[in-house]
C-alpha cells in the first residue's frame, strides 16, 4: 500500500476527517507502517504507552485483565484509532489490544501525535468529541449496571 492510499484511508478515520490531505500525507510518512498476524499483540495492559495505532485494515479485540481472567470489552476495525489514551494522559496502557485478523496499522509515535494535536486544533476537538462520547457511553453502561445490581439485591 502506498502513501497516497494510506492518506485515503486516514481521511475515512473520523479523527482526521477535518485535516488537510497534505498534512495527512506527512502524518502517514512519519508513521511506521506495521503488520500483525491474527493473534499478535499490539500492546499490553500495564506497558508504557509510546504510540497510538490507526487500524488500516483488519480487526482487533480490546481486552482488559480482570480477577477472573481477560475480558473482551470491545472490538475495533478499520479506520479506528487505538492506544491514544495512554499517550494523552501519560498513564500505562489501560487495555491489551490483540489482532483478531491479519491487521495493517499505522504506528504514530507519542511525540508525533502530540505535535499533531498542537499543530491542528481541529484534530484536538475531534479527539475531545470522541473521548466525550466514549465517556457518556461508559457512564450510561455504568448506570445500567448499577441499577441492574440494585434490582437484583
Amino acid at each position: 500500500m502506498l502513501l497516497k492510499d494510506e492518506v485515503q484511508m486516514l481521511r475515512r478515520v473520523p479523527l482526521f476527517s477535518g485535516v488537510d490531505p497534505t498534512k495527512l500525507k506527512l502524518l502517514a510518512f512519519t508513521s511506521d507502517r506495521v503488520h500483525y498476524a491474527a493473534g499478535e499483540i499490539l500492546f499490553r495492559q500495564g506497558d508504557n504507552g509510546d504510540a497510538a495505532y490507526v487500524i488500516l485494515t483488519g480487526r482487533a479485540d480490546i481486552l482488559v485483565e480482570a480477577p477472573g481472567g481477560q475480558i473482551k470489552v470491545a472490538e475495533v476495525e478499520n479506520n479506528s484509532i487505538v492506544g491514544e489514551i495512554a499517550i494523552l494522559c501519560d498513564v500505562s496502557r489501560t487495555a491489551t489490544v490483540k489482532a483478531s485478523t491479519n491487521l495493517e496499522a499505522l504506528r504514530i509515535s507519542k511525540e508525533h501525535f502530540l505535535k499533531l494535536l498542537t499543530d491542528f486544533p481541529e484534530m484536538t476537538i475531534e479527539i475531545m468529541r470522541e473521548l466525550a462520547s466514549r465517556l457518556s457511553r461508559t457512564t450510561m453502561e455504568l448506570t445500567d449496571e448499577r441499577s441492574r445490581a440494585r434490582k437484583s439485591d
Partner: peptide, 9 residues
C-alpha cells in the same frame, strides 16, 4: 530509498 518505509510507490 526503501519502498516499504517511504512508500512513495
Amino acid at each position: 530509498y526503501i519502498e516499504p518505509r517511504h512508500r512513495f510507490g
